[in-house]
């Protein structure tokens, strides 16, 4: 059964009771939340997620609750908790959905060391996967959002999971998080997607989450050998430039973008070396979305 098969009341009953149990990528989550915005967020943005039985093993027991006490009347806040541990300070209640998304990212990054976790989007078409690591401002999410409406499949928007066991990238197709101007750019680019609610004034600016199209999440495979590593750099008014990147430099950049390289240590180093060895690596500077899409096509079809 998928989350989209649950009616609104059943969903709310689970969330405010024993927890809504569902799968996202390789992870199983139990979420408890009485905040209505979270229920709407899950219903809209996780429709493809499979729900789980009561006896299924759960990786992450999560709650996002409103902070109790006198303050709730003056300045309502939400706090994210992972088995009682609260990694972040409370956020304004209006940012509840963002707190859930960031919190789940935190759970995965802080405890899933069967993967080297790289801050990166991953998309795939015709068996060819592209890793798009993203420092802030690189335009990684914007590019990813556009690609998955042009025939590419979403593997991940926020984190590439490189498996220590098989050297493959594993898929965790959660909603794409877009910020500030990117939201309007993608809304102008495609009418197709379902959007979450606009969340204003977060530490990262205004955010909207976009649900990946059906075509982009439903079919297998869930793991793949990547073929390209492309570091996107958005620069307004520049010329498109595709520059091959040395494997040494590419390794260093990947490691810099990995959340848990320090945990995996020497094994992580070997994983990065093996991965980079098998990849074509590029630096990619682009001035707008159209050029960006053309550039990715150029990299992955003919030789630039």
């Amino acid at each position: 059964m998928l989350i989209s098969d649950l009616d609104c009341n059943t969903l709310k009953t689970h969330l405010s009771g024993q927890g809504l149990r569902f799968r996202t990528g390789p992870f199983s989550v139990s979420l408890r939340a009485t905040i209505p915005a979270i229920a709407r967020h899950i219903a809209k943005l996780y429709p493809h997620s499979e729900t789980l039985d009561n006896d299924a093993f759960i990786d992450f027991h999560i709650t996002t609750h409103q902070v109790a006490g006198l303050r709730r009347w003056l300045k309502p806040q939400v706090v994210f908790s992972f088995d009682g541990y609260k990694p972040f300070k409370p956020l304004p209640l209006a940012q509840a959905a963002a707190a859930f998304e960031w919190g789940l990212n935190w759970c995965i990054a802080s405890s899933s060391h069967q993967y080297l976790i790289i801050h990166s989007a991953v998309v795939e078409k015709d068996g060819q996967a592209v890793i798009l690591p993203g420092s802030p401002g690189s335009g990684k999410s914007t590019l990813c959002a556009a690609l998955i409406h042009r025939g590419w499949r979403l593997f991940s928007d926020e984190m590439a999971l490189l498996s220590a066991a098989d050297g493959m990238i594993h898929s965790v197709p959660r909603p794409v998080s877009l910020k500030n101007q990117s939201i309007e750019i993608i809304k102008a680019f495609t009418q197709e997607p379902v959007w979450g609610e606009r969340i204003e004034g977060t530490t990262k600016g205004d955010i909207e989450h976009m649900c990946a199209p059906d075509s982009s999440v439903r079919q297998p495979p869930t793991a793949i050998h990547a073929k390209y590593l492309v570091f996107p750099h958005y620069q307004s008014g520049c010329l498109t430039e595709i520059t091959p990147l040395s494997k040494g430099r590419a390794s260093m950049n990947l490691i810099e973008n990995a959340f848990n390289f320090n945990i995996l240590g020497h094994q992580g180093f070997e994983m990065v070396s093996d991965l980079v060895d098998s990849l074509e690596c590029y630096d990619f500077t682009y001035p707008d979305l159209k050029q960006a899409l053309d550039g990715i096509e150029q990299i992955t079809s003919a030789k630039p």
Partner: peptide, 15 residues
């Protein structure tokens, strides 16, 4: 130390 050579570069990891 672990060494990974590629062409004229090398990445070194200090255990």
């Amino acid at each position: 130390l672990a060494f990974q050579f590629w062409d004229d570069e090398c990445v070194v990891y200090n255990r």
